[in-house]
Design a protein around this nucleic acid. Structure first.
Length: 839
RNA sequence: GCGGACGUGGCGGAAUCGGUAGACGCAGCGGACUUAAAAUCCGUUUUCCCAAGGAAGUGCGGGUUCGAGUCCCGCCGUCCGCACCA
């Protein structure tokens, strides 16, 4: 029996099976002659369920991948799992399930959900980062970097949770306490591995310049994160000592305005003084307390402790400056010491006013050149240098250069480029991560695991009953022999930060030999990723680490590319209204009834409408992808993900919106179902042209990822088809539609393609060609303006001359009435657009 | 505090180069079909005076231009990133 409606449940399953059977999403060979197109969406963490944000992300990538295939590209469109990380260990502790078991089950569940979307993914390349076959290669690369000096080991302070016996990231410390245990977090020194990303700071910065297909916003965020600043390192000699204090400044031009030296609480000089000065020791302790949140720093008072020491001013040895320990100086930026120039730095001014230190103007603020500086607002602008002896009258820039030259000549300082970026600490005292392939030997020290003993596999028999890292207390796993001297030795029990796993997965997708991380030729045939799509939340860390990892491989001669992602797109979130009942509890959308805008709960209680927010479990404003696919089918859901909102902005999920998509899917299906058999007879030029415009326009919009505009153009074409009464043109236009919608509505497109007698699968067809001549109209509507205001429109041949257009405009009845016989002062003619008559 | 983005109908948004503002969708309103509903179809919807025809209009105030949503200056608002970075 003939269906009267499109049945997505049936169609989705049918066509997904057909695609799989024909293996049409298999990646072409590396030597495929077609141009390559690598489309990649950020791979998901297997938390257990796909959420709607994934659906939006993967739909966008899928549209592009399918479109690129139709336009003659060899496409790589893979998917995998960012499978290591904390949630699996938390699940292990809470539910007693092994992290691996939990993760594998989640992957299976999420893959089943993804399959329902009908994504054009080559699943044969799927992997999870917790596969030993993946992380073993990561260990090999770690060792390469170790040998190349890119990895180093350093004692460094970490946030230590004494109850959970683990290191916490800064984000996991809330009000000084561990986010899980609630225990007071301790600062603890541990030997940790670092990647020397700061060595790459300059090239990571300049490399941003060639990423012209990245959002400016992301490039700027990375630029700020790297935080390059140029200045002077100056040595201030301690009075009565051979030693000195090194200071970094970006304002050497203000050196004659110096009034004190300030060092960080954990500066070695402060530490050594504290040994014999209990008051200072107390002060240092005080500095370490107090939060580091934005609000706290905003209001934090400047605190200082006068050490009683003084230093010589490098420009005048007779001029002595007091040395203070100050809470606003950071040990891990610059040298951990600054000279205070209160007149031209707000922090220094606050500090100087509080402790009664001199405030001396050395940069003129307009007419103000007086050495005595009034007020509590520092002058940080540019101006002529004053009260600075030989530098008086110089510009700030000239003075900086002059003083750096002098410092280098007199050997008390040198120019310095300073970066905000810190080296990447990659040690984690956790189980569920890539084991760091290092062996500790009492005689030989730190020794890399020999390549032929990789992968160092995580042991399965671990227990999470006690807090801490299970690798650390495993009865046998730690024990091994030194690869060099064969003496008993210990394995490193730390694992790698999971950001390492996601720093090269895109290379592994492109090439996955067994015996190496990747084969160079094959990887380079696909890389860099042609289009990378994901959330803005990864703007800094993931994207910076992946760029760094790629450059590290490049520096070691392993790969020729330097940038992994040629184009980046950051999509917006999916949002939904929030609801609360009378007692303030969150309600989910299906617990709320809407009758003409009046909201009630299912039991009739009052409901208030809250803000539109990102879908989250805690606010209960989520829609479950499985549920909506059950109800509307994959295509309607995909269509909604692409409609209305520009992809980089947030998308508001609404019931009425998805129902509109569902209606449109049905409308298309009716068109296919009732299409005429023959395309002979008279033509409807307007429809024929609309068709060609749609083909060209939709292609351009998919290419530029403006899917909302592509959607609008398809609506326009369908509206035009439905309005037209000319069978021949309708016949042809309807036969264009399946290919046009195939990237976005792939199941319906197959259904239509089949119903209209197409052979094979529409997913394998070429994108329809458009006739450029059909994109231009013979007649154009021209605006007739008087003094820039629209008065009428006239229709003229497209190639009408200026003279013809002007004459036609002047002959227009409304123009005649408006100018009333007067002579126009000026007439502007823009051919094909408008005539503006100035009177 | 520093840096950045954005502000267009009831809502999401379109307007690619400074050239007819409001495409397309949602919601609304009126109508057709129907015993009725659903579904579908037709029409309509920036505001004001409204019959015609006008006038105003893209956060606010200025400017450049024959012409500004678009460019420039100054405000206001919202959002995002970083932050005692010397």
């Amino acid at each position: 029996m003939h269906d009267t409606r499109f049945n997505p449940i049936k169609a989705d399953a049918t066509w997904q099976a057909a695609w799989e059977k024909a293996a049409i999403f298999a990646t072409p060979a590396a030597d495929d002659p077609r141009p390559k197109s690598y489309v990649l969406e950020m791979f998901p963490y297997p938390s257990g369920r796909i959420h709607i944000g994934h659906v939006r992300n993967y739909t966008m990538g899928d549209v592009l991948a399918r479109f690129r295939t139709m336009t003659g590209h060899a496409v790589l469109h893979p998917m995998g799992w960012d499978a290591f990380g904390m949630p699996a260990e938390n699940a292990a502790m809470e539910k007693g399930v092994h992290p691996g078991t939990w993760t594998r089950a989640n992957i299976a569940a999420m893959k089943a959900q993804l399959l329902r979307l009908g994504l054009a993914i080559d699943w044969s390349r799927e992997f999870a980062t917790c596969d030993a076959a993946y992380y073993g290669h990561e260990q090999a690369m770690f060792l390469d970097m170790f040998d190349a000096g890119i990895v180093y080991r350093k004692e460094s302070a970490v946030n230590w949770d004494p109850v959970d016996r683990t290191v916490l990231a800064n984000e996991q410390v809330i009000d000084g306490r561990g986010w899980r245990s609630g225990a007071l977090v301790e600062r603890k020194k541990l030997n940790q591995y670092f990647l020397r990303i700061t060595d790459f700071a300059e090239e990571l910065l300049t490399g941003l310049g060639e990423l012209d297909k990245w959002p400016d916003k992301v490039r700027l965020m990375q630029e700020n994160w790297i935080g390059k600043s140029e200045g002077l390192i100056a040595n201030f000699s301690l009075v009565g000592s051979e030693q000195g204090v090194e200071v970094f400044t970006t304002r050497p031009d203000t050196m004659y305005g110096a009034s004190f030296l300030a060092i960080a609480a954990d500066h070695p000089l402060a530490q050594s003084l504290a040994a014999n000065a209990p008051e200072l020791a107390t002060f240092i302790e005080q500095c370490k307390q107090g939060g580091t949140t934005a609000a706290e720093l905003e209001t934090a008072e400047k605190l200082g402790f006068n050490t009683g020491l003084s230093v010589q001013h490098p420009l005048d040895p007779d001029w002595h400056l007091p040395v203070w320990v100050a809470n606003f100086v950071l040990m891990d930026y610059g040298t951990g010491a600054v000279f205070g120039c209160p007149a031209h730095d707000q922090r220094d001014l606050d500090f100087a006013r509080k402790y009664g230190l001199p405030v001396r103007r050395v940069v003129a603020d307009g007419d103000a050149t007086d050495a005595d500086f009034d007020g509590d607002i520092a002058f940080t602008g540019a101006g002529a240098i004053v009260n600075s002896h030989w530098m008086d009258g110089m510009s700030v820039a000239a003075a900086k250069a002059a003083i750096i030259a002098r410092a280098e000549h007199d050997r008390w300082g040198h120019a310095k480029v300073q970066y905000r970026l810190r080296d990447w600490g990659i040690s984690r005292q956790r189980y569920w991560g890539t084991p760091i392939p290092i062996i500790h030997c009492d005689a030989c020290g730190v020794v890399g695991v020999p390549r032929d003993q990789l992968p160092v596999v995580l042991p399965d028999d671990v227990d999470f009953a006690t807090p801490g890292n299970p690798l650390d207390r495993h009865p046998t796993w730690r024990d091994t022999n030194c690869p060099k001297c064969n003496a008993p030795a210990r394995r490193e029990t730390d694992t790698l930060d999971t950001f390492a796993d996601s720093s090269w997965y895109f290379i592994r997708f492109a090439s996955q030999p067994q015996d190496a991380p990747f084969s160079r030729a094959e990887a380079e045939s696909w890389l860099p990723v042609g289009q990378y799509i994901g959330g803005i939340e990864h703007a800094i860390l993931h994207l910076l680490y992946a760029r760094f990892w790629t450059r590290a491989l490049h520096r070691m001669g392993k790969i020729s590319i330097t940038e992994p992602f040629a184009a980046l797109f950051t999509q917006g979130m999916v949002t939904h209204e929030t609801y609360r009942d009378a007692t303030g509890n969150w309600l989910s959308p299906d617990e709320v009834r809407d009758e003409n805008g009046v909201l009630t709960s299912l039991d009739g209680g009052a409901v208030t409408r809250g803000r539109v927010e990102k879908m989250s479990k805690s606010k209960k404003n989520v829609v479950d992808p499985d549920g909506i696919i059950d109800q509307y089918g994959a295509d309607a859901v995909r269509w909604f993900m692409l409609s209305d909102s520009p992809p980089e902005r947030d998308l508001l999920w609404t019931e009425s919106g998805i129902e509109g998509c569902w209606r449109f899917v049905q409308r298309l299906w009716r068109l296919f179902d009732a299409a005429a058999e023959s395309g002979d007879g008279a033509r409807d030029m307007a429809l024929d042209k609309a068709c060609h415009r749609a083909i060209a326009g939709v292609a351009a919009d998919i290419e530029s990822l403006t899917f909302n505009k592509a959607v609008a153009k398809i609506y326009e074409l369908v509206n035009a088809i439905e309005k037209s009464r000319v069978p021949a043109s309708r016949h042809d236009a309807i036969r264009i539609l399946p290919r046009l919608i195939s990237p976005m509505l792939p199941h319906l497109a197959e259904e239509g393609w089949q119903a209209l007698g197409g052979s094979g699968l529409v997913a394998q067809q070429s994108w329809p060609e458009h006739d450029a001549a059909m994109l231009v109209d013979d007649d154009v509507t021209i605006a007739v303006q008087i003094n820039g205001k629209l008065r009428d429109t006239i229709t003229l041949p497209r190639d009408a001359s200026r003279e013809v257009a002007q004459a036609a405009a002047l002959a227009n009845a409304r123009v005649q009435a408006a100018i009333a016989g007067a002579t126009p002062k000026k007439i502007i003619v823009v051919p094909g657009r408008l005539v503006n008559i100035v009177v």
